[in-house]
Design a protein around this nucleic acid. Structure first.
Lengths: 191, 191
DNA sequence: GGGCACATGTAAGCTGTTACATGATTAA
DNA sequence: TTAATCATGTAACAGCTTACATGTGCCC
């Protein structure tokens, strides 16, 4: 039951929107869920096969490549609801940027600054993407039932990136102070 | 070189502050780095053994349990600097909350609301922890060289949790609207 | 007819977690 | 003397990534 079928959840969820091929599925997971979820493609086809075996999805059309799509079945929808209702599995944090900053003394303020600037640029890029998704969602006619829920996730992304940008600015200022504190004695000596 | 020695980074980093036993090391990683980094304990001892073999850490005292501590060596420090300078390995996102909200239509606004409330409570708990760490850091006399860098990571945590709380409030309001939109037609019919 | 995007899979291998095994020391 | 905590490991396994293998259909 708790068989970590997180891949199943993502696959069933994507198919709950519309039937598609395995190939389209992996693109959908990459492009649509990509901001907060990822599946390695080596998992998708096996998961799909297992779901088919359990009758949770059905292959439409011949099994010849290029002509078959996978559709979720009624029991698949039931299973999806069941999976979504299960407790969230916490992901152990692994924030490489924070690890480097925490031991930043060994790295030096300059290198830390670069890392923070990179992170800021990253956040700004994502911010632009969220805005684009929001615009798209707000003008789209399809999936109006899903829209408000999707907007929740976009909004979460926007809040997160805004916070990242604000933090980055603060961090850059702080790193300048560290630099100044290090330089000050030397400069005094030099003059 | 790129051998995913992220565990080594964390271990060397922790030992760069002060020598300690493997047991203390794992507690330190859990309690101090825990907010943004995690290591499974099954990795720490093998990593420690490998680092010892490479001369990057040295075992002080007898090898009898309870009396030996591990200390970082000069070449260990050099290795740490090298590891910290390596490019950050991006973690594939796996945000269970967002996955559930994205497909929230199948879950219903009520269940989504619970999830968001849980997330908010979580963020508030972490917020309190960050405040405590900040106070501790600002009053501590030790590790003054590390302090400004550690404060950067605390600040990142604070920004992130503040954003999470703000988003949660917004999301709860949005979910109320969804509920209202669903109820309205029924209520009209009933009256 | 050559290249590209579509399409479906498999297998090796690495990473990381969990559970287990063992024993010393200390506090109640 | 029993339980808890400190301390050090190992081994099995689950999960995931990567690279590979294979083939189709379409467009230039």
């Amino acid at each position: 039951m708790a068989r970590s079928s997180q891949t199943e959840t993502a696959v069933l969820g994507a198919l709950s929107v519309e039937p598609m091929t395995g190939y389209a599925l992996r693109e959908s997971i990459r492009d649509v869920l990509g901001h907060f979820w990822s599946e390695s493609f080596g998992q998708i086809y096996p998961a799909l096969a297992e779901l088919e075996r359990q009758g949770l999805v059905r292959r439409r059309g011949s099994s010849r490549p290029g002509s078959s799509t996978f559709a979720i079945t009624a029991s698949g929808r039931a299973r999806l609801r069941q999976l979504l209702a299960q407790p969230i599995q916490p992901v152990p944090p692994r924030n490489g940027l924070m690890l480097r900053l925490f031991f930043g003394r060994h790295l030096g303020p300059e290198a830390c600054r670069s890392l923070v600037l990179e992170a800021k640029a990253d956040a700004e890029r994502r911010q632009a993407q969220y805005e684009a998704i929001r615009r798209e969602l707000e003008h789209e006619e399809n999936h109006t039932e899903d829209r408000p829920f999707r907007l929740l996730t976009v909004s979460a992304g926007e809040h997160t990136t805004r916070a990242a940008i604000a933090w980055a600015d603060e961090a850059i200022a702080a790193l300048k102070d560290i630099d100044a504190a290090n330089d000050a004695p030397e400069q005094r000596r030099r003059r």
